[in-house]
Design a binder for these strands. Structure first.
Length: 546
RNA sequence: GGGCCGGUAGCUCAGUCAGGCAGAGCGUCUGGCUUUUAACCAGACGGUCAUGGGUUCAAUUCCCAUCCGGCCCGCCA
């Protein structure tokens, strides 16, 4: 079975970039074109960045293969005929507004446990079903990242008949199917039938199969209780018959069936599948469907801010939220890193991720020193994270962008960025525009994490202040000094002098300044900051006039 | 209980496949700016490579055991 160890695809390669390792393995198989790359997830609730592994890991490999001249199809199966097992705590509308269950009809959802996602009404009423709603959000996540995928609904594969032959084939060979699966699952017994029927009476997917006639294409069932985790969903007891299109294969068979029907050449999957579904899937693909399993790749799971991603506990972050704080290219870059490592998506330290990306980019353009290893990785990985390779692009360091975010005047932002040397004189217009777009992202990051960059210049209205006479006198003198057009360092020095000459504590005097500008006790280095704001405003504000 | 993956500086991570002086960025500290607050420049500090054994001239790297985080053997990125 070592031939199908899903870890060796990357482990056994000497490539610096895992995407090359996978692409090499795929090429070794000499697959027909277009090469098919698949991912898939149950549309069970709000999609988070963990789910994006199923899309972005495949995309990275697709891009490497395309760079090598191959034609590639990236399909994504919405495994939407799976059962709703539990009611999620949170949902999201199509605009990514996360809402608690109380805001929708939770009772209605609770009554749908055990039914396929696509048989449950959309709680928001905007899509054809619960499944369609969350598949829609998954598709939108891909779109936000600029990744083209073909979304395939499992439900449609069954209902439309594309899955009928494989389903019949499994049922015709159910004895053998049972034997193979029993090697991997202790619970498989003599009476096991690899099919779940959608009860005509209550709609629950039942395992209570009493008879099958593959040739006629019918399955007789009795709607028994279904055990899902530690919950039991009551069956209604109805006895009836369905066609092969009105139910589904259990996951262990459905996955290899997808490989067969969709002709899958490569599929990345989470570590949860590495030792369960994957080996049994390989055996079923070879022993039942007589197809070669795809090239496998295991990815480790992410944590978010140090804790497990968990829909039920609410520790999730969506693509939309992430992309409010950084560019799509940076998020893609996160997925270009080694899939074998457990990785934390740390919102508090997003600046480090962005800095790392900037460096990665600079290595690609040969602008900084780097090891051969780093260079080799950037060479083939960078083109998968950006759409256009443009050496003239401009990147303002993320934390500096956060500083610029303290003011919302776009011209001032650009002026400061230029003065500090973060925008070259000959930078093209598009590059400046994109560079300054990062300011909005960094601002949002500062706001969300409420970190040391979260200063909000109170430009519109002066904060409520109450200074003593000495402080007021010193502020007036500082205003006069600023009015003369002094530079930042001079203003900084003057602040000290004024504090001393008016017998004020230096710290208190600085705090007065921060209070006037930000309604806070501390802030960025005051002199240079004052020098960078428009002078009239600063002078008026120091005089407490507006 | 059996098995699989991960653990490298305060933080985020390279490096381990193929054994050969322990790496980067950020943070911290120091100095520069004639005077506490850096978004600038220069420099320094920082590690028992989770722990303990073993193999080897040499181990972060290979082997064994243990600890920690997570996963699989029931469903689920």
């Amino acid at each position: 079975m070592s031939d199908h160890d899903p870890y060796v695809t990357i482990d056994d390669s000497d490539r610096a970039f895992w995407g090359d390792a996978v692409a090499d393995t795929i090429e070794t198989r000499d697959p027909d074109e277009p090469i098919v790359i698949k991912g898939g997830v149950s549309p069970s609730g709000v999609p988070h960045i963990g789910h994006l592994n199923e899309i972005v890991r495949g995309y990275v490999v697709a891009e490497v293969l395309r760079d090598r001249g191959h034609e590639v199809r990236q399909v994504f199966t919405a495994d939407d005929r799976d059962r709703l097992r539990k009611v999620p705590r949170q949902l999201a509308d199509l605009e990514w507004n996360v809402v608690g269950l109380g805001e929708v009809d939770a009772g209605a959802l609770g009554r749908n446990l055990g039914k396929p996602y696509t048989s449950i009404p959309d709680p928001f009423g905007c899509c054809g079903s619960y499944g369609a709603h969350f598949t829609n959000l998954l598709a939108r996540s891909a779109e936000l990242l600029g990744i083209p995928i073909e979304v395939v609904s499992n439900t449609e594969l069954y209902a439309g008949g594309e899955f009928e032959d494989v389903t019949r084939h499994v049922l015709s060979n159910r004895g053998r199917a049972r034997e193979i699966l029993a090697d991997y699952q202790a619970s498989v017994d003599e009476g096991y039938v690899p099919f779940q029927a959608e009860c005509r009476s209550c709609g629950v997917l039942t395992d209570g199969i009493v008879d099958v006639d593959p040739e006629a294409g019918t399955v007789a069932y009795e709607c028994r209780d279904v055990t899902v985790g530690d919950e039991t969903i009551e069956g209604c007891g109805h006895e009836g018959e369905v066609t092969l299109r009105e139910g589904k294969l259990p996951w262990r068979f459905e996955w290899p069936a997808q490989w067969s029907v969709l002709d899958v050449d490569f599929e990345p999957f989470g570590k949860d599948h590495a030792e369960g579904s994957w080996p049994s899937g390989v055996a079923i693909a070879e022993g039942i469907f007589d197809v070669e399993p795809p090239v496998p790749m295991v990815y480790e799971w992410f944590t978010l801010n140090g804790d497990a991603l968990s829909s039920s506990s609410g520790n999730v972050i969506t693509a939309a939220e992430v992309l409010s704080m950084l560019e799509p290219a940076v998020l893609r870059y996160f997925f270009v890193k080694d899939p074998r490592k457990q990785r934390d998506f740390d919102v508090a330290h997003l600046d480090q991720l962005v800095d790392e990306f900037d460096r990665f980019e600079a290595v690609y353009f040969d602008e900084i020193e780097a090891s051969d290893e780093e260079r080799e990785r950037a060479e083939s990985a960078y083109p998968t994270v950006v759409d256009d390779l443009r050496a003239e692009r401009v990147r303002i360091p993320y934390t500096f962008a956060a500083v610029l975010g303290m003011t919302d005047d776009p011209d001032l932002r650009e002026e400061i960025a230029r003065r500090e040397g973060h925008i070259p004189d000959d930078a093209p217009e598009w590059a400046i525009e994109e560079a300054l777009a990062r300011v909005e992202s960094a601002r949002e990051w500062a706001r969300r994490t409420d970190n040391e960059f979260n200063y909000d210049l109170k430009r519109e209205e002066i904060p409520a202040v109450d200074f003593d006479a000495d402080t007021e006198a010193a502020l007036d003198e500082l205003a006069d000094f600023v009015a003369e057009g002094q530079d930042g360092e001079a203003i900084q020095g003057r602040i000290y002098e004024l504090a001393e000459s008016h017998d004020l504590d230096v710290g208190d005097f600085f705090a007065a300044g921060y209070r006037l500008l930000f309604d806070l006790e501390e802030g960025p280095k005051l002199g240079p900051f004052l020098a960078k704001l428009d002078r009239e405003f600063v002078v008026d504000r120091l005089r407490r006039e507006r």
